[in-house]
């Protein structure tokens, strides 16, 4: 109320700033504003307002540390690729997390791997692009967190093994097999057998959180996986085994919090 009367005193019916020089907003404040605004809105306008604002938008790699392509909607693949390039250029090699979304293809992922060698977190949704996830993560030695959803992978167990072998230092891993509901009912699509892991994983010394959404893991396989992850704290599985078996497993591994989700 007070400030309203203040501005009215100075300039009746004023709508825009009367005296404040917004172009000269201190850089650390503008930086915070830009962070809240989000990358897409910075692209669409804020970075072209004036030279001092542009200096912040282009000269602060920290603004571009977390690249999330899932927020870029309604544009062609070509434009998406250009936006990604600009994002990566502005991050100046400091990008730490990348989320690709449903339209991220192999060429985009390759670009990210080249331009973000210190990536710590990678989130992908492989929607029939046949992305070479394993090839990409081999080139990311600092990767700590990986989240991938596959549509119809060739063999989930083999994929899981390859991922673990490529990145044995992961701290958080989430692999999800997305396929149409009726495919689950057709048991032939899923290799369920009572034996141990067909493709054993290496010891994952740093893995604390593991999420495996796939219906083919039997109790024996889960035991083998847990035994290969000495510091595992959280295991999230699809209800591939009965609730009683989950309770048995939970009783056996007190250090672990096991969540069995129902989809």
């Amino acid at each position: 109320m007070l400030s309203c009367s203040y501005s009215h005193r100075k300039r009746p019916c004023s709508t825009a700033a009367a005296t404040a020089d917004w172009a000269a907003l201190p850089p650390d404040i503008l930086f915070t504003v830009f962070l809240k605004l989000g990358q897409h809105d910075i692209f669409c306008g804020a970075d072209s307002v004036c030279t001092s604002w542009r200096r912040i938008a282009l000269g602060e790699p920290a603004l571009w540390r977390h690249v999330d392509m899932t927020k870029v909607l309604l544009c062609s693949m070509r434009r998406l690729a250009i936006i990604l390039q600009k994002n990566m250029n502005r991050s100046a090699g400091q990008c730490e997390s990348f989320s690709g979304g449903i339209r991220c293809d192999q060429s985009m992922l390759t670009y990210v791997v080249q331009r973000a060698p210190s990536l710590k977190s990678l989130c992908l949704l492989d929607y029939r692009h046949r992305i070479n996830v394993v090839g990409a993560i081999k080139k990311l030695p600092l990767l700590e967190c990986l989240k991938v959803a596959f549509f119809e992978p060739a063999c989930f167990e083999k994929t899981f093994q390859s991922v673990c072998e490529a990145c044995p230092r992961l701290k958080k891993l989430s692999l999800r097999h997305i396929c149409l509901p009726w495919a689950y009912r057709n048991k032939e699509n899923i290799e369920i057998h009572g034996g141990p892991l067909k493709y054993p994983i290496p010891v994952m010394h740093e893995l604390r959180s593991l999420r495996l959404i796939f219906y083919g893991f039997t109790e024996k396989k889960l035991v083998a996986i847990i035994d290969s992850c000495p510091v595992l704290e959280y295991l999230h599985i699809a209800p591939c085994i009965s609730d009683e078996k989950v309770q048995e497993l939970q009783a056996r591994y007190a250090r672990l919090k096991i969540v069995s989700a129902h989809y």
Binding site: A16, A18, W22, D41, C44, G45, A46, V49, C50
Partner: peptide
């Protein structure tokens, strides 16, 4: 600033191009 073009933002904040 959200959803605004550079021109619109300049107008809101009275910033010279």
């Amino acid at each position: 600033m959200k959803g605004k073009s550079p021109d619109q933002i300049r107008e809101v904040f009275n910033i010279k191009n």
